[in-house]
Design a protein around this nucleic acid. Structure first.
Lengths: 217, 217
DNA sequence: GTCTATACTTGGATAGAC
DNA sequence: GTCTATCCAAGTATAGAC
Protein backbone atom coordinates (compact mmCIF):
# COMPACT_ATOMS: atom_id res chain seq x y z
CA UNK A 1 0.00 0.00 0.00
CA UNK A 2 1.13 3.53 -0.74
CA UNK A 3 2.43 5.49 2.16
CA UNK A 4 0.63 8.73 1.27
CA UNK A 5 -2.81 8.66 2.86
CA UNK A 6 -3.06 4.96 3.69
CA UNK A 7 -1.42 3.92 6.94
CA UNK A 8 -0.62 0.26 7.53
CA UNK A 9 -2.11 -1.29 10.64
CA UNK A 10 0.66 -2.11 13.08
CA UNK A 11 0.58 -5.35 15.06
CA UNK A 12 2.26 -6.08 18.38
CA UNK A 13 5.93 -5.13 18.27
CA UNK A 14 7.24 -8.61 19.02
CA UNK A 15 5.04 -10.43 16.50
CA UNK A 16 6.24 -12.36 13.47
CA UNK A 17 6.04 -9.07 11.60
CA UNK A 18 3.81 -9.39 8.63
CA UNK A 19 2.82 -5.82 9.38
CA UNK A 20 4.91 -2.69 9.55
CA UNK A 21 7.42 -1.56 6.99
CA UNK A 22 9.90 -4.34 7.73
CA UNK A 23 7.21 -6.94 7.17
CA UNK A 24 5.96 -5.20 4.07
CA UNK A 25 9.46 -5.20 2.64
CA UNK A 26 9.86 -8.90 3.30
CA UNK A 27 6.49 -9.66 1.69
CA UNK A 28 7.34 -7.45 -1.27
CA UNK A 29 10.64 -9.27 -1.67
CA UNK A 30 8.86 -12.61 -1.85
CA UNK A 31 6.55 -11.21 -4.51
CA UNK A 32 9.42 -9.74 -6.46
CA UNK A 33 11.44 -12.96 -6.40
CA UNK A 34 8.44 -14.82 -7.65
CA UNK A 35 7.51 -12.43 -10.41
CA UNK A 36 10.71 -10.87 -11.66
CA UNK A 37 13.34 -13.24 -10.31
CA UNK A 38 16.47 -12.57 -8.36
CA UNK A 39 18.00 -10.26 -10.94
CA UNK A 40 14.83 -8.18 -10.96
CA UNK A 41 14.58 -7.98 -7.20
CA UNK A 42 16.42 -4.70 -6.72
CA UNK A 43 16.01 -2.39 -3.76
CA UNK A 44 14.02 -0.01 -5.92
CA UNK A 45 11.69 -2.69 -7.27
CA UNK A 46 11.09 -4.15 -3.81
CA UNK A 47 10.45 -0.74 -2.26
CA UNK A 48 8.02 0.09 -5.03
CA UNK A 49 6.06 -3.07 -4.31
CA UNK A 50 6.14 -2.38 -0.58
CA UNK A 51 4.91 1.16 -1.20
CA UNK A 52 7.83 2.79 0.53
CA UNK A 53 11.12 4.43 -0.21
CA UNK A 54 14.16 2.67 -1.54
CA UNK A 55 16.36 3.92 1.29
CA UNK A 56 14.33 1.98 3.84
CA UNK A 57 15.69 -1.28 2.52
CA UNK A 58 19.08 -0.22 3.77
CA UNK A 59 17.77 1.37 6.95
CA UNK A 60 15.98 -1.83 7.99
CA UNK A 61 18.17 -4.53 6.50
CA UNK A 62 21.53 -2.96 5.72
CA UNK A 63 21.72 -4.49 2.24
CA UNK A 64 19.57 -6.05 -0.43
CA UNK A 65 21.22 -9.43 0.11
CA UNK A 66 20.25 -9.42 3.77
CA UNK A 67 16.67 -8.64 2.82
CA UNK A 68 16.66 -11.47 0.30
CA UNK A 69 17.79 -13.87 2.99
CA UNK A 70 15.17 -12.51 5.37
CA UNK A 71 12.54 -13.24 2.75
CA UNK A 72 13.88 -16.75 2.33
CA UNK A 73 13.78 -17.22 6.09
CA UNK A 74 10.25 -15.95 6.28
CA UNK A 75 8.94 -18.32 3.64
CA UNK A 76 11.03 -21.21 4.88
CA UNK A 77 9.93 -21.11 8.50
CA UNK A 78 6.29 -20.40 7.72
CA UNK A 79 6.11 -23.30 5.32
CA UNK A 80 7.99 -25.66 7.56
CA UNK A 81 5.41 -25.19 10.31
CA UNK A 82 2.71 -26.00 7.79
CA UNK A 83 4.50 -29.09 6.55
CA UNK A 84 5.33 -30.30 9.99
CA UNK A 85 1.72 -30.15 11.14
CA UNK A 86 0.47 -31.85 8.01
CA UNK A 87 3.00 -34.67 8.12
CA UNK A 88 2.23 -35.27 11.78
CA UNK A 89 -1.32 -36.11 10.80
CA UNK A 90 -0.21 -38.63 8.17
CA UNK A 91 0.57 -42.04 9.66
CA UNK A 92 1.39 -44.02 6.51
CA UNK A 93 2.99 -43.66 3.10
CA UNK A 94 -0.31 -43.21 1.35
CA UNK A 95 -1.46 -40.40 3.63
CA UNK A 96 1.97 -38.78 3.39
CA UNK A 97 1.74 -38.58 -0.37
CA UNK A 98 -1.74 -37.14 0.01
CA UNK A 99 -0.69 -34.25 2.22
CA UNK A 100 2.50 -33.71 0.26
CA UNK A 101 0.46 -33.26 -2.89
CA UNK A 102 -1.93 -30.84 -1.21
CA UNK A 103 0.78 -28.65 0.24
CA UNK A 104 2.87 -28.81 -2.87
CA UNK A 105 -0.04 -27.38 -4.76
CA UNK A 106 -0.31 -24.56 -2.22
CA UNK A 107 3.37 -23.87 -2.59
CA UNK A 108 3.24 -23.95 -6.32
CA UNK A 109 0.31 -21.55 -6.45
CA UNK A 110 1.72 -19.17 -3.88
CA UNK A 111 5.16 -19.28 -5.45
CA UNK A 112 6.98 -20.23 -2.29
CA UNK A 113 9.24 -22.71 -3.97
CA UNK A 114 10.00 -20.18 -6.64
CA UNK A 115 11.69 -18.16 -3.94
CA UNK A 116 13.82 -21.14 -3.01
CA UNK A 117 14.69 -21.87 -6.61
CA UNK A 118 15.64 -18.28 -7.39
CA UNK A 119 17.89 -18.09 -4.37
CA UNK A 120 19.59 -21.40 -5.11
CA UNK A 121 20.08 -20.47 -8.73
CA UNK A 122 21.41 -17.06 -7.86
CA UNK A 123 23.70 -18.34 -5.15
CA UNK A 124 26.59 -18.54 -7.59
CA UNK A 125 26.12 -14.94 -8.70
CA UNK A 126 26.33 -13.22 -5.34
CA UNK A 127 29.50 -13.98 -3.39
CA UNK A 128 28.85 -15.54 -0.01
CA UNK A 129 25.20 -16.20 -0.71
CA UNK A 130 25.78 -19.89 -1.34
CA UNK A 131 26.61 -20.76 2.24
CA UNK A 132 23.67 -18.78 3.60
CA UNK A 133 21.23 -20.44 1.24
CA UNK A 134 22.67 -23.84 1.97
CA UNK A 135 22.13 -23.33 5.67
CA UNK A 136 18.49 -22.45 5.02
CA UNK A 137 17.87 -25.47 2.80
CA UNK A 138 19.43 -27.86 5.29
CA UNK A 139 16.37 -28.05 7.60
CA UNK A 140 14.22 -28.98 4.63
CA UNK A 141 16.46 -31.84 3.74
CA UNK A 142 16.49 -33.06 7.33
CA UNK A 143 12.73 -32.73 7.51
CA UNK A 144 12.22 -34.69 4.30
CA UNK A 145 14.63 -37.43 5.31
CA UNK A 146 12.82 -37.74 8.63
CA UNK A 147 9.40 -37.97 7.02
CA UNK A 148 10.67 -40.57 4.58
CA UNK A 149 12.31 -42.56 7.34
CA UNK A 150 9.18 -42.66 9.42
CA UNK A 151 6.71 -43.58 6.72
CA UNK A 152 9.03 -45.96 4.94
CA UNK A 153 10.26 -47.81 8.00
CA UNK A 154 7.92 -50.75 7.67
CA UNK A 155 7.46 -50.75 3.92
CA UNK A 156 9.22 -53.14 1.51
CA UNK A 157 10.51 -50.06 -0.31
CA UNK A 158 12.90 -49.55 2.58
CA UNK A 159 14.98 -52.42 1.24
CA UNK A 160 15.33 -50.79 -2.17
CA UNK A 161 16.61 -47.34 -1.23
CA UNK A 162 18.00 -45.66 1.84
CA UNK A 163 15.87 -42.86 3.31
CA UNK A 164 18.61 -40.32 2.71
CA UNK A 165 18.89 -41.18 -0.95
CA UNK A 166 15.16 -41.05 -1.41
CA UNK A 167 14.93 -37.77 0.48
CA UNK A 168 17.60 -36.22 -1.70
CA UNK A 169 15.74 -37.33 -4.80
CA UNK A 170 12.47 -35.95 -3.48
CA UNK A 171 13.91 -32.54 -2.71
CA UNK A 172 15.55 -32.44 -6.13
CA UNK A 173 12.34 -33.50 -7.84
CA UNK A 174 10.44 -30.87 -5.92
CA UNK A 175 12.79 -28.13 -7.04
CA UNK A 176 12.84 -29.37 -10.60
CA UNK A 177 9.07 -29.55 -10.86
CA UNK A 178 8.83 -25.99 -9.65
CA UNK A 179 11.36 -24.84 -12.23
CA UNK A 180 9.44 -26.44 -15.07
CA UNK A 181 6.07 -25.27 -13.78
CA UNK A 182 7.42 -21.74 -13.49
CA UNK A 183 9.00 -21.84 -16.93
CA UNK A 184 5.81 -23.09 -18.56
CA UNK A 185 3.48 -21.21 -16.26
CA UNK A 186 1.67 -24.55 -16.09
CA UNK A 187 1.30 -26.55 -12.92
CA UNK A 188 -0.74 -29.35 -14.45
CA UNK A 189 2.09 -31.82 -15.15
CA UNK A 190 3.42 -31.51 -11.62
CA UNK A 191 -0.01 -32.05 -10.13
CA UNK A 192 -0.70 -35.00 -12.43
CA UNK A 193 2.52 -36.54 -11.19
CA UNK A 194 1.33 -36.24 -7.62
CA UNK A 195 -1.94 -37.90 -8.54
CA UNK A 196 0.05 -40.76 -9.95
CA UNK A 197 2.21 -40.94 -6.83
CA UNK A 198 -0.98 -41.15 -4.79
CA UNK A 199 -2.14 -44.13 -6.84
CA UNK A 200 1.18 -45.89 -6.50
CA UNK A 201 1.35 -45.27 -2.78
CA UNK A 202 -2.08 -46.84 -2.45
CA UNK A 203 -0.86 -49.81 -4.44
CA UNK A 204 2.21 -50.27 -2.28
CA UNK A 205 0.08 -49.96 0.86
CA UNK A 206 -2.26 -52.65 -0.46
CA UNK A 207 0.61 -55.02 -1.26
CA UNK A 208 2.32 -54.51 2.06
CA UNK A 209 -0.26 -53.80 4.76
CA UNK A 210 0.75 -50.91 7.01
CA UNK A 211 1.41 -52.93 10.22
CA UNK A 212 -1.22 -50.79 11.97
CA UNK A 213 0.48 -49.95 15.27
CA UNK A 214 3.71 -51.43 16.38
CA UNK A 215 4.03 -51.76 20.19
CA UNK A 216 5.27 -54.05 22.98
CA UNK A 217 8.26 -55.89 21.41
CA UNK B 1 43.35 -16.70 -24.23
CA UNK B 2 44.67 -13.15 -24.14
CA UNK B 3 44.66 -11.35 -27.44
CA UNK B 4 48.04 -9.69 -26.95
CA UNK B 5 50.70 -12.04 -28.28
CA UNK B 6 48.67 -15.26 -28.43
CA UNK B 7 46.64 -15.73 -31.57
CA UNK B 8 43.84 -18.27 -31.58
CA UNK B 9 44.03 -20.99 -34.22
CA UNK B 10 41.23 -20.54 -36.70
CA UNK B 11 39.35 -23.56 -38.05
CA UNK B 12 37.40 -23.83 -41.27
CA UNK B 13 34.99 -20.92 -41.63
CA UNK B 14 31.88 -23.05 -41.87
CA UNK B 15 32.70 -25.26 -38.89
CA UNK B 16 30.67 -25.47 -35.70
CA UNK B 17 32.80 -22.59 -34.48
CA UNK B 18 34.60 -23.50 -31.36
CA UNK B 19 37.40 -21.34 -32.74
CA UNK B 20 37.43 -17.69 -33.65
CA UNK B 21 36.20 -14.84 -31.54
CA UNK B 22 32.57 -15.78 -31.86
CA UNK B 23 33.29 -19.28 -30.66
CA UNK B 24 35.49 -18.01 -27.88
CA UNK B 25 32.72 -15.74 -26.68
CA UNK B 26 30.23 -18.59 -26.65
CA UNK B 27 32.65 -20.80 -24.73
CA UNK B 28 33.41 -17.99 -22.30
CA UNK B 29 29.69 -17.47 -21.75
CA UNK B 30 29.25 -21.12 -20.83
CA UNK B 31 32.10 -20.82 -18.35
CA UNK B 32 30.72 -17.63 -16.89
CA UNK B 33 27.22 -19.05 -16.46
CA UNK B 34 28.71 -22.01 -14.69
CA UNK B 35 30.99 -20.12 -12.40
CA UNK B 36 29.35 -16.81 -11.65
CA UNK B 37 25.76 -17.45 -12.69
CA UNK B 38 23.48 -15.48 -14.93
CA UNK B 39 23.71 -12.29 -12.91
CA UNK B 40 27.49 -12.44 -13.09
CA UNK B 41 27.58 -13.14 -16.82
CA UNK B 42 27.94 -9.56 -18.01
CA UNK B 43 29.37 -8.53 -21.36
CA UNK B 44 32.52 -7.34 -19.61
CA UNK B 45 32.96 -10.54 -17.62
CA UNK B 46 32.39 -12.72 -20.67
CA UNK B 47 34.77 -10.70 -22.82
CA UNK B 48 37.42 -10.87 -20.11
CA UNK B 49 37.15 -14.67 -20.10
CA UNK B 50 37.24 -14.78 -23.90
CA UNK B 51 40.32 -12.56 -23.89
CA UNK B 52 38.77 -9.92 -26.06
CA UNK B 53 37.05 -6.59 -25.87
CA UNK B 54 33.64 -5.98 -24.41
CA UNK B 55 32.40 -4.27 -27.55
CA UNK B 56 32.79 -7.46 -29.54
CA UNK B 57 29.89 -9.02 -27.70
CA UNK B 58 27.64 -6.46 -29.34
CA UNK B 59 29.41 -6.57 -32.67
CA UNK B 60 28.99 -10.32 -32.96
CA UNK B 61 25.75 -10.94 -31.12
CA UNK B 62 23.96 -7.62 -30.84
CA UNK B 63 23.13 -8.06 -27.16
CA UNK B 64 24.16 -10.03 -24.12
CA UNK B 65 20.86 -11.88 -24.09
CA UNK B 66 21.44 -13.14 -27.63
CA UNK B 67 24.86 -14.38 -26.64
CA UNK B 68 23.41 -16.16 -23.62
CA UNK B 69 20.93 -17.93 -25.88
CA UNK B 70 23.71 -18.81 -28.32
CA UNK B 71 25.60 -20.40 -25.44
CA UNK B 72 22.52 -22.35 -24.44
CA UNK B 73 22.10 -23.49 -28.04
CA UNK B 74 25.70 -24.55 -28.25
CA UNK B 75 25.57 -26.68 -25.13
CA UNK B 76 22.15 -28.00 -25.93
CA UNK B 77 22.86 -29.24 -29.43
CA UNK B 78 26.29 -30.62 -28.59
CA UNK B 79 24.93 -32.59 -25.68
CA UNK B 80 21.91 -33.81 -27.56
CA UNK B 81 24.11 -35.43 -30.15
CA UNK B 82 26.00 -37.15 -27.38
CA UNK B 83 22.84 -38.36 -25.68
CA UNK B 84 21.27 -39.48 -28.88
CA UNK B 85 24.23 -41.65 -29.81
CA UNK B 86 24.45 -43.15 -26.34
CA UNK B 87 20.78 -43.95 -26.08
CA UNK B 88 20.82 -45.55 -29.50
CA UNK B 89 23.29 -48.09 -28.17
CA UNK B 90 21.10 -48.95 -25.18
CA UNK B 91 18.39 -51.48 -26.08
CA UNK B 92 16.76 -51.96 -22.65
CA UNK B 93 15.90 -50.13 -19.47
CA UNK B 94 18.95 -51.34 -17.66
CA UNK B 95 21.34 -50.21 -20.35
CA UNK B 96 19.50 -46.92 -20.62
CA UNK B 97 20.05 -46.15 -16.96
CA UNK B 98 23.69 -47.10 -17.40
CA UNK B 99 24.36 -44.63 -20.17
CA UNK B 100 22.19 -41.98 -18.54
CA UNK B 101 24.32 -42.22 -15.41
CA UNK B 102 27.53 -41.99 -17.37
CA UNK B 103 26.52 -38.93 -19.37
CA UNK B 104 24.91 -37.28 -16.41
CA UNK B 105 28.23 -37.48 -14.66
CA UNK B 106 29.91 -35.88 -17.66
CA UNK B 107 27.33 -33.11 -17.64
CA UNK B 108 27.62 -32.55 -13.96
CA UNK B 109 31.38 -32.31 -14.11
CA UNK B 110 31.46 -30.10 -17.16
CA UNK B 111 28.67 -27.90 -15.78
CA UNK B 112 26.46 -28.20 -18.83
CA UNK B 113 23.28 -28.57 -16.85
CA UNK B 114 24.27 -25.60 -14.75
CA UNK B 115 23.90 -23.52 -17.89
CA UNK B 116 20.38 -24.86 -18.37
CA UNK B 117 19.47 -24.24 -14.76
CA UNK B 118 20.81 -20.70 -14.73
CA UNK B 119 18.90 -19.84 -17.87
CA UNK B 120 15.66 -21.35 -16.62
CA UNK B 121 16.02 -19.64 -13.27
CA UNK B 122 16.84 -16.32 -14.86
CA UNK B 123 14.07 -16.55 -17.40
CA UNK B 124 11.74 -14.60 -15.13
CA UNK B 125 14.24 -11.77 -14.71
CA UNK B 126 14.86 -10.93 -18.33
CA UNK B 127 11.70 -10.09 -20.29
CA UNK B 128 11.15 -12.33 -23.27
CA UNK B 129 13.79 -14.83 -22.24
CA UNK B 130 11.23 -17.32 -20.96
CA UNK B 131 9.84 -18.20 -24.36
CA UNK B 132 13.29 -18.58 -25.88
CA UNK B 133 14.49 -20.86 -23.12
CA UNK B 134 11.30 -22.88 -23.28
CA UNK B 135 11.82 -23.48 -26.97
CA UNK B 136 15.33 -24.74 -26.29
CA UNK B 137 14.26 -27.08 -23.50
CA UNK B 138 11.45 -28.56 -25.58
CA UNK B 139 13.68 -30.90 -27.62
CA UNK B 140 15.10 -32.31 -24.40
CA UNK B 141 11.67 -33.13 -23.14
CA UNK B 142 10.73 -34.77 -26.42
CA UNK B 143 13.97 -36.70 -26.43
CA UNK B 144 13.45 -37.93 -22.89
CA UNK B 145 9.85 -38.93 -23.53
CA UNK B 146 10.95 -40.84 -26.59
CA UNK B 147 13.72 -42.69 -24.78
CA UNK B 148 11.32 -43.56 -21.98
CA UNK B 149 8.67 -44.72 -24.41
CA UNK B 150 11.04 -46.98 -26.24
CA UNK B 151 12.68 -48.65 -23.28
CA UNK B 152 9.52 -48.86 -21.22
CA UNK B 153 7.27 -50.20 -23.93
CA UNK B 154 7.54 -53.84 -22.91
CA UNK B 155 8.12 -53.40 -19.21
CA UNK B 156 5.44 -53.81 -16.53
CA UNK B 157 6.29 -50.29 -15.39
CA UNK B 158 4.47 -49.04 -18.46
CA UNK B 159 1.21 -49.89 -16.73
CA UNK B 160 2.05 -47.75 -13.73
CA UNK B 161 2.94 -44.44 -15.36
CA UNK B 162 2.59 -42.88 -18.77
CA UNK B 163 5.84 -42.15 -20.62
CA UNK B 164 5.10 -38.44 -20.67
CA UNK B 165 4.61 -38.28 -16.94
CA UNK B 166 7.76 -40.24 -16.30
CA UNK B 167 9.71 -38.11 -18.75
CA UNK B 168 8.55 -34.93 -17.06
CA UNK B 169 9.63 -36.29 -13.70
CA UNK B 170 13.00 -37.34 -15.06
CA UNK B 171 13.75 -33.94 -16.54
CA UNK B 172 12.67 -32.27 -13.30
CA UNK B 173 14.79 -34.64 -11.23
CA UNK B 174 17.74 -34.00 -13.51
CA UNK B 175 17.47 -30.25 -13.06
CA UNK B 176 16.91 -30.53 -9.32
CA UNK B 177 19.90 -32.80 -8.82
CA UNK B 178 22.07 -30.33 -10.67
CA UNK B 179 20.83 -27.47 -8.49
CA UNK B 180 21.64 -29.31 -5.31
CA UNK B 181 24.97 -30.56 -6.58
CA UNK B 182 25.89 -27.04 -7.60
CA UNK B 183 24.77 -25.55 -4.31
CA UNK B 184 26.74 -28.07 -2.28
CA UNK B 185 29.59 -28.35 -4.73
CA UNK B 186 29.13 -32.07 -4.18
CA UNK B 187 28.10 -34.50 -6.90
CA UNK B 188 28.24 -37.62 -4.73
CA UNK B 189 24.55 -37.79 -3.75
CA UNK B 190 23.42 -37.47 -7.35
CA UNK B 191 25.83 -40.16 -8.50
CA UNK B 192 24.82 -42.46 -5.65
CA UNK B 193 21.25 -42.07 -6.78
CA UNK B 194 22.18 -43.21 -10.26
CA UNK B 195 23.92 -46.23 -8.84
CA UNK B 196 20.73 -47.08 -7.07
CA UNK B 197 18.70 -46.59 -10.22
CA UNK B 198 21.05 -48.97 -11.98
CA UNK B 199 20.41 -51.63 -9.33
CA UNK B 200 16.67 -51.17 -9.54
CA UNK B 201 16.68 -51.28 -13.32
CA UNK B 202 18.55 -54.57 -13.13
CA UNK B 203 15.96 -55.84 -10.70
CA UNK B 204 13.08 -54.86 -12.92
CA UNK B 205 14.79 -56.45 -15.91
CA UNK B 206 15.23 -59.68 -13.95
CA UNK B 207 11.59 -59.76 -12.88
CA UNK B 208 10.30 -58.97 -16.33
CA UNK B 209 12.66 -60.42 -18.97
CA UNK B 210 13.32 -57.95 -21.74
CA UNK B 211 11.58 -59.87 -24.56
CA UNK B 212 14.89 -59.93 -26.48
CA UNK B 213 13.76 -58.93 -29.94
CA UNK B 214 10.20 -58.54 -30.90
CA UNK B 215 9.52 -59.47 -34.51
CA UNK B 216 7.07 -61.32 -36.78
CA UNK B 217 3.75 -61.11 -34.91
C1' DG C 1 11.12 6.07 10.69
C1' DT C 2 10.55 7.97 6.52
C1' DC C 3 11.64 10.90 2.58
C1' DT C 4 14.71 13.56 -0.81
C1' DA C 5 18.90 14.10 -2.82
C1' DT C 6 23.06 12.57 -4.19
C1' DA C 7 27.70 10.04 -4.58
C1' DC C 8 29.53 6.09 -6.54
C1' DT C 9 29.68 1.81 -9.31
C1' DT C 10 28.58 -1.35 -12.81
C1' DG C 11 26.75 -2.71 -16.96
C1' DG C 12 24.46 -2.29 -21.77
C1' DA C 13 25.24 -0.27 -25.87
C1' DT C 14 27.28 2.96 -29.62
C1' DA C 15 30.86 5.86 -32.32
C1' DG C 16 34.96 6.19 -34.37
C1' DA C 17 40.00 5.27 -34.90
C1' DC C 18 42.95 1.65 -36.55
C1' DG D 1 37.30 -7.30 -36.77
C1' DT D 2 39.12 -5.34 -33.03
C1' DC D 3 40.10 -1.69 -29.71
C1' DT D 4 39.45 2.83 -27.16
C1' DA D 5 36.50 6.04 -25.51
C1' DT D 6 32.24 7.40 -24.16
C1' DC D 7 27.16 7.85 -23.16
C1' DC D 8 23.41 6.48 -20.60
C1' DA D 9 20.54 3.76 -17.49
C1' DA D 10 20.03 1.33 -13.32
C1' DG D 11 21.53 -0.16 -9.00
C1' DT D 12 23.73 0.10 -4.14
C1' DA D 13 24.42 2.77 -0.50
C1' DT D 14 24.80 7.11 2.38
C1' DA D 15 23.74 11.93 4.25
C1' DG D 16 20.71 14.97 5.93
C1' DA D 17 16.11 17.22 6.31
C1' DC D 18 11.66 16.38 8.39
Amino acid sequence: MARAGTKRVVGKPGATDTEGTKGALVAATVDALREVGLAGASAREIARRAGCNQGLVFYHFGSVTTLLLAALDSVSTARRVRYHDAVDGAPGLSELVDVAAAIFEEDLNAGYIAVLVEMIGGASSIPGLGAEVRARIAPWRAFTADAVRRSLGESPLAHLVTPDELAHAIVALYLGLEMLAHLDDDRAPALALFDRARQLAGLVAALAPPAPTKESP
